[in-house]
Simulated scan of single mutants.
Amino acid sequence: MSKVLVVGGAGYIGAHMVKQLSRAGHSVVVLDNLTTGFRELARYGELVVGDLADLNLLERLFNEHSFAGVMHFAAASLVGESMQQPGKYYRNNVANTLNLLDVMVRHDVKSFIFSSTAATFGEPIYTPIDEAHPQQPINPYGASKLMVERMLKDYAAAHGLNSVCLRYFNACGADPEGELGECHDPETHLIPLVLQAASGKRDAITVFGRDYPTEDGTCVRDYIHIEDLCSAHALALSALLGGEKQGALAYNLGNGTGFSVQEVIAVVQNVVAEDSCTLQIDEGQRRPGDPAVLVANAALAKQELGWQPKYTDLETIVRHAWHWEKSRG
């Protein structure tokens, strides 16, 4: 099988991807600066601690290894922080990605999978959001990802670098075998936040607004299990390596079904009650910039990549995440 470089492979999504690649027989090198990644999560690949800003390191890696493809998960990804520190996001997410692309071109590596985001769309004009939806990001995080998507189109035309951008909605859940899971500092994602409130690691979970134009008044989001997310990446990589896909392509990845904040809380309450855990819920005001509904139309990925999500049930997603949360003590 092929040798693959996974940048950011010690993070939440990257670590699950590395495990899938390794299980499929690929040889994996992980490049991660460990600012948000964890050394213990990079257990399935050869870990190189370093940064995409280090051109000498990149040249050395590409000289030492014959990579068939590269997967990039090493973005800064906090929307609020991007508003306060836009330079960090343009430097890391754009300039450092440019370093990587230039080294790939110099070493004639033609297959690139890019971790993009629904934040490139901005405020939704309609839902579910398909690939034809206008991309009008409203924060530097989304803008930085969109810049890379544009760069990839230009690199495909100029250098024959083939790429697939996968735009996530809400990645969630954990490795069904319990080895890997979600751990961010600070944590900003709803499901782990609710589970931390259930496990006693935080006092309560706050619901920010109950007056949205949704069935129960709380925001609706599209939650996609981490295993399903990674399986789409694996299919995209295979399509590039096999020559089935060329150019600069992009697909939305989501469950296709929205779940409200209240629905997530209710499912968590049912799951954690089996361990005699309870949940304190606080009420908060709406947060600026929170759309009422964000749901993906992922039909194109299913049609063109043959992707079929396995874990679309919210309770299964929560159970896998709860198992991981309990294992961390």
Rank of each mutant, 00 (worst) to 15 (best):
V29W: 04
L31C: 01
L34K: 10
T36K: 09
R39F: 06
R39L: 06
E46S: 14
L47T: 11
V49F: 07
V49M: 08
A53S: 15
L55G: 15
L55H: 07
L58S: 07
L58H: 10
E59Q: 12
N63Y: 02
H65L: 03
A68S: 14
A68M: 04
A68Y: 00
G69E: 03
V70H: 08
H72V: 02
F73K: 04
A74R: 11
A74N: 11
L78C: 03
L78W: 02
V79H: 03
V79T: 12
G80T: 05
M83I: 14
Q85K: 15
Q85A: 13
K88V: 15
K88I: 13
Y89K: 10
Y90K: 04
Y90V: 14
N92C: 11
V94F: 10
V94A: 06
L100M: 10
D102P: 00
D102N: 15
M104G: 02
V105M: 06
D108Q: 14
D108W: 02
V109H: 03
S111T: 04
I113A: 03
S115L: 02
A119K: 03
F121W: 07
E123K: 13
I125E: 15
Y126I: 12
T127N: 15
E131H: 11
Q135C: 15
I138F: 01
N139E: 13
S144R: 06
K145C: 11
K145N: 13
V148C: 03
R150W: 01
L152F: 08
K153H: 14
Y155W: 10
Y155H: 11
A157K: 14
